[in-house]
Amino acid sequence: MSMRPGGELATRPLHFIWIADCSGSMAVDGKIQSLNTAIKEAIPHMQEVADENPNAQVLVRAVKFSDGAQWHVSQPTDIVDFKWDDLTAGGVTAMGMALGIVADQLKIPPMTDRALPPVLVLISDGQPTDDFAGGLQALMNEPWGRKAVRIAIAIGEDADQEVLKKFIANPELKPLQANSPESLTKYIRWVSTAVLKSASSPASQSAAAAASGINVPIPVVPDSGGSSADDVW
C-alpha cells in the first residue's frame, strides 16, 4: 500500500507585508533611499531564514502610502523570487488607507486559517493625514489583523509615536526609533530575520497566555546605538 490518504500537502504560508511611508518628508535627508537600501539588503537574509525552515512558505508584499495607498508589490511573492523596486517620495501620509487595503487582504479568504501569523511592518516618519483610526479599526476587525505580528519603525524624531503604538497595540512592544540609516538598516534586518524566524515556527501556546497580545515570541530588539553624531533624522 503506497497511496497516502488525503489531498495535496502544502507548507504553511507566512505573509510578510511592508507598509511604507512615501510622503514628501521621506525625501528629506535621504530617508527613502535608506529605506530602499535597507530592504534590498535584507532580502538575502530573509531568503536564508526561509531556507532554514522549508515548512514555512514566506510570501512578501508591500504597500506604499502618500496621497493615497496602493500595493507596491501586490502579489504574495515567494521570498526566493522577491525583488525590490525603489520607492519614491512625495505627497501626504494616507496611513489609514494603507491599513485598510492590508485589512482587505487579511480576510479569510483570501487568507486561510492554516496560515502562520502574518508579519506587518509599518514604517513612517510622520503623522497620518487621513482616517488612521478607521484604517486601524478595519485591520483589527480581521482575525488575522488582530493576530498579526505588528512591528512599527519610526524614522526620525517627527514620527508619530502614539499612532505607531496604537498600530502595535501591545504595551510590551514599543516602536523602533531609527534616527540614522545605520539604525534603520539594523531594525529592518532584525524584523526580516529574527522576527521572521520566530513567526515561522509552528509552536502553539495557551490562548489565555496570549491574551496579552503577543502570540509569537518577539526576539530581543537590537540596540539602536543611542544618540550620536551620526543621527541625521
Binding site: P143, W144, A207
Partner: peptide, 11 residues
C-alpha cells in the same frame, strides 16, 4: 483556536 493559539490544560 486560531493563529497558533489554543485552549489548554494549563489555563
Amino acid at each position: 483556536l486560531f493563529a497558533n493559539e489554543t485552549t489548554s490544560l494549563c489555563a
